[in-house]
Design a protein around this nucleic acid. Sequence first.
DNA 1: TCTGGATGTTCAT
DNA 2: TGAACCTCCAGAG
Length: 276
Amino acid sequence: MPEGHIIHRLAAENHRAFGGRSVRASSPQGRFADGAKLIDGRELVAAEATGKHLFLGFGEDAWVHVHLGLYGGFTFAELGGGPVPEPVGLVRLRLENDEHVADLRGPNTCALITGAEKAAVAARLGPDPLRADADPDAAWRRITGSRTTIAALLMDQKVLAGVGNVYRAEVLFRHGIDPHRAGRELRRAEWDAIWADLVALMREGVGAGRIDTVRPEHTPEAMGRPPRVDDHGGEVYVYRRAGLSCLVCGTEVRTEEHASRNLFWCPSCQPAGARG
DNA sequence: TCTGGATGTTCAT
DNA sequence: TGAACCTCCAGAG
């Protein structure tokens, strides 16, 4: 379930569990056996996230680069003095010390890279709303003047790093913006509002470990509707709510395939041609 | 038991 | 634009 907020969470969690101490590393599945062997017994000196990329540093020039892709996952377990559990499923990388075990499954990328290679990965990415050093102007320069839809631009990691399909759909809903509008039709004030909202929403997501975007005045309780649970674990307006009523206006939420990804929006709250 | 889908990226055409 | 890849799980049969 990885959008950027999860990756930042994982960086913190790895640091908490393994930082500053030597780590036992293995690849129960075998597909990262060589890399695991090289970092086995070394100290985890840094754990960083940029967009959806996670970097675990084991010394000056040895970084494990992880990208979870669509369905990769990192699970943590506290040992509490008990036995180390057997790996379940296909575990690409296992990290452990006497207190914690972490298993990495199904990543798109799990590779040992140098500091220079890590810098090159980061250089390809647009600003990450979760990073203090992010420059929203860099994203704006790629959005303004672009004929590509704002829906596609928000998902393009070269434009903006860390935003995925859920945050994309939700932030456009929250600002009443039709996903099909071209980047060049977006006004600067709208972009500033989107960026500020992403910073706030994604920070909340890091803390909560899930994506909640529904404003207090639109919760089921506030609207006098029965409570609901969205199946991805958070409270959202439109993501994966196709065919259901918009929480704000009651119009049916729509979906379509857009640049090979599922797009969700409310045609009334996000009308075509409307300007913020 | 099997199939399809999923919060993603990259490479070939 | 389409296919390949990484893995798990809900739902269908």
